[in-house]
Computed example of a mutant assay.
Amino acid sequence: MQTNEIVMPGKVEPSGFEVRVRDLPAPAQGQVTLRMDATGVSFAEQQMRRGKYYDQPAFPFVPGYDVVGTVTAVGPGVDPALVGRRFAAVIKTGGWASHLQLDAADLVPVPDQVSAAAAETVAVNGVTAWQMLHRSARVRRGGTIVVLGANGGVGSTLVQLARHAGMTVIGTASERHHETLRRLGAIPVDYRDPEKMYRQIRELAPDGVDAVFDHVGGPALVDSWALLRRGGTLVSYGTAATKDEEGNAQLPVLKSYGRLLLWNYLPNGKRANFYSFWAGLRFRASFRRRLAADLTQVLKLVAEGVVTPQIAAEFPLANAAAALSLAESRTVSGKVVIVP
């Protein structure tokens, strides 16, 4: 079998991506061969092409943080009944390929009534949103939260999960996305003027909020921290503010982590967390169980119509460069999806 792959050869513009065709061997012990039905563009790929993702592999490599696909072959030790069934998996790299191999233990079943594109949209984004809301912040019903970048893939999912859990959501986005946020149940605030944005949020929640979910990082973390009421939680899960800066890719993350750690020692009853999707990976079995449980919950909500995946656009694999360019334009709401 052959596979078509999109390769990031180095720090290049999307137009510099390469297409590679190579032979795919039979799956090894514990592995499956997956035919890609949908993959996507996450913020990680936007950082990776700049060499700015915290622990990305050395160039060249095949990007693709998550994937939904159909099993076409199984290796020794894997149940043959998996062939022909559809699964989602979070893999960090390798998803931008027509076929790929991965461990069967990483597969999470996708309900029949959920399309491949819909499942892909909530794979890494849904797990991230679910874990930040229910495992990191643990906001109770009736609470108020702030979601920065609420029109994005993680943000739009987080808004819906929070509304389903009975929370009030203040979401930031450019004005063109405000109607979408209202439809999802959030109170929109324009983020183009940060000083005005934080002032408006304080007017909407004068007693403070129960949680802020901040993917921006950088100096504005101080402003997000200040929005919290006593007992509130700041969840930082990215450093978008430094995406285009040159230098060490790990430094912005380490700076944010250090700042958040110190804030937890302040006597104000507030908490600060740096969310990492891959936290606990060294305990691989428990990590996989937790990921599968959380993604299964999100996919169940999609199947029930509680969560509507926000698909910004779909591109064929051969046009992955255009898909990334659109995602980086910051003009879309939801996630850009790549299909065969």
Rank of each mutant, 00 (worst) to 15 (best):
L262M: 14
F283A: 09
G95P: 00
G280F: 10
Y53M: 12
A320M: 09
D55E: 12
G218Q: 03
M132Y: 09
V41C: 03
S15I: 11
A323D: 12
D103N: 04
L324H: 15
R163W: 10
T233S: 02
R230Y: 12
G10K: 06
L133E: 13
V21Y: 12
A150C: 04
G77N: 10
R135S: 12
R163F: 07
P267R: 08
V41F: 06
L161T: 01
P188I: 06
Q113Y: 01
D210W: 07
V83G: 00
Q160S: 02
V307F: 03
H215S: 15
S115R: 09
L234G: 00
V19P: 01
G10I: 03
V67M: 09
G258Y: 02
V147E: 13
P309F: 04
A165D: 15
E245M: 09
R288V: 07
P267A: 12
V19Y: 07
T233M: 00
Q250N: 08
F43W: 12
N125H: 06
R163Q: 11
K300F: 10
L295T: 08
G149P: 07
R192I: 10
L261P: 00
P76G: 11
V41P: 02
D190G: 00
K335I: 13
D210E: 14
V41W: 09
A272E: 13
N125A: 07
L221G: 08
R163E: 11
E13I: 07
A118T: 13
F17W: 15
V7S: 00
L317P: 06
G84V: 12
P80E: 15
D223A: 12
L102V: 03
R35Y: 06
T128F: 04
A312I: 03
M197S: 11
T233C: 02
A303K: 04
P14F: 09
D79R: 08
W96E: 13
S42E: 13
Q29I: 07
M8L: 15
P63T: 06
G143F: 01
A58S: 13
R49M: 14
V110W: 02
S276D: 11
G334V: 10
V67E: 11
G84N: 10
A249G: 06
L204S: 02
E314Y: 02
R229Q: 14
T296A: 14
